[in-house]
Design a protein around this nucleic acid. Sequence first.
DNA 1: CTGTTAGCGCATTCAA
DNA 2: TTGAATGCGCTAACAG
Lengths: 339, 339
Amino acid sequence: MDATRVRIEDVAAAAGVSMKTVSRVLNHEPNVREDTRKRVQEAVSRLQYRPHHSARSLAGQRSYVVTFAYDNPSFNYLMEIQRGVLEACRAQHYNLLLAPLTYRQRESIDEIDGLLGHYGSDGFVLIPPLTDDLEFLAYLERRGMPYASISPRAGNGHMGVTVDDRGAVRELIAHLVSLGHRRIAHISGHPDHGASEWRLQGYRDAMKLAGLECRREWLSPGEFTFESGVRAARRLLALDPRPTAIFAANDDMAAGVLRVASELHLSVPRDLSVCGFDDVPIAHHVTPALTTVRQPTREMGRMATLELLKAIREPGAGQMVAVDYTLQLRDSTGRAPDA
Amino acid sequence: MDATRVRIEDVAAAAGVSMKTVSRVLNHEPNVREDTRKRVQEAVSRLQYRPHHSARSLAGQRSYVVTFAYDNPSFNYLMEIQRGVLEACRAQHYNLLLAPLTYRQRESIDEIDGLLGHYGSDGFVLIPPLTDDLEFLAYLERRGMPYASISPRAGNGHMGVTVDDRGAVRELIAHLVSLGHRRIAHISGHPDHGASEWRLQGYRDAMKLAGLECRREWLSPGEFTFESGVRAARRLLALDPRPTAIFAANDDMAAGVLRVASELHLSVPRDLSVCGFDDVPIAHHVTPALTTVRQPTREMGRMATLELLKAIREPGAGQMVAVDYTLQLRDSTGRAPDA
DNA sequence: CTGTTAGCGCATTCAA
DNA sequence: TTGAATGCGCTAACAG
């Protein structure tokens, strides 16, 4: 396609050194005198030299590819993470391979194995629930494939990022309590996600701290989808006495609660307060805008990837890092009707 | 790293043929006897042979990479297209490179050029408004880079997919008219998108056909964002007499209209009918669920990519194909209040 | 229809 | 601190 491609050889000639020296400079290896390094770098930019991805990969026995694996994600969450992962890859001249294992859990191991071949990927970035899929993790370990996990359950990943979901929910519920709410219901998330558990625990913690009873019927299971939020809300809002506030474990389900409230002619937040978690775009596009917890999703994708890249370069180097959440108080929460 | 990689040579030995014959079978080239082909395929699957992506790319002077370029997209639209593109790439053992040119229009050409240098790319898939960015298209042409366009303006792409937006809107407005609406307003989309123009034309066509006046103040410009929908709706709903129906050029803006209606204590659809376009997930997650037009977004991504891959294989082979829309009548439209 | 030979552009020995 | 040779796994010419 491009006959006039500039090769490492051309750079070497232009700088009056050998190919290997150029290679050393490009890969930030030691043992190059400072002025030779300068000469090489100048030649590189003068000739607009770009290393050939495939050639590097073939000779170097590395793919320069990071695989982002996901399964059944919320679009908004996925997109934000993906952007972060992409940013980090770009910055280090890595390529991103998308691995949606969306439908066929059963085939996923073989499928991925086929896609990657043996040298297809230098590492993985995982999001829940794949972070906790023991079969999948075992596969990665077996292949000696490094991976970074975003919000894994404790023990299911040695590098990546975490957020204190439990503490966030404690704060959120405390806010509802401060508005006079006492009958606070919770719609939990998909059981495969660690987040569901942490958010439930946060809810329990907060209720206990406030000295409020935590009736079983205030608890309704969901699956992180809008529709499951609708189903759960129907159940909860049929109770007598009705809860005055509902905390859904994510924004999609909270949007479902708003839908049911509207059907029942309940005004939010006058008759019912609603809050979610994640702060995806839908949270401020529904009416009223949702009170929720913001986690820096994009940044989380970026940071997890950076840790992975560290580990690829220097095995064992990746860390598990913690990031902060922030409460977003908006229009879907207000004083309790009976307060 | 993995000493036991199966190479094409091993397959050749196992099948009792030469490397080149195996290569021919793998690449679906002609001139292989049927029984030799069978023998080779059997050896391939028995040894679980996977071609090495980088080696193929290096030797074949092709990258086996398709670049998906986008700029300032709606998340939902983007995700659906991306899934389609990915499916098509997978099916043909191509790899996908994401090129978000989101923020720095100005730098995009250089940026992409740099990326191309690093990874190489055999072709591009474009979505609006990049489909109509003349500078960008010129760049691609200059490099002889094939590209497939999704919903480009007429003349700005020779292969890809199109939908009859104009006809769809005609049908949609006709439906409103049949419900007794006569004061129908329109919030148009971002001027850089051909779709904005087509949808506006469809609106005008339909009003004319119904013999309805098409007042200038019924027309309010938007930018395809939720917030621009809110601004436009505030203007439209302050008019006297008020429109009884608003057609927003996409679902995000229609969601903005719902927000304003709620603020003004207008009941939808009793006091006001609202409809959108695209049928992204938010369309059925808002309350009430939006009447809208569904275009098969994912399929469009897939089809555009398939055309591109055809053209990569055989220059000049890609076509512009048309896909169908379908009306989604839901709860946000009803009889006109004054009908 | 099939096989042989020679690189693709780079990183990696090992020697200097 | 540097350089020359060798090969990563595959495909493209050209033979046969």
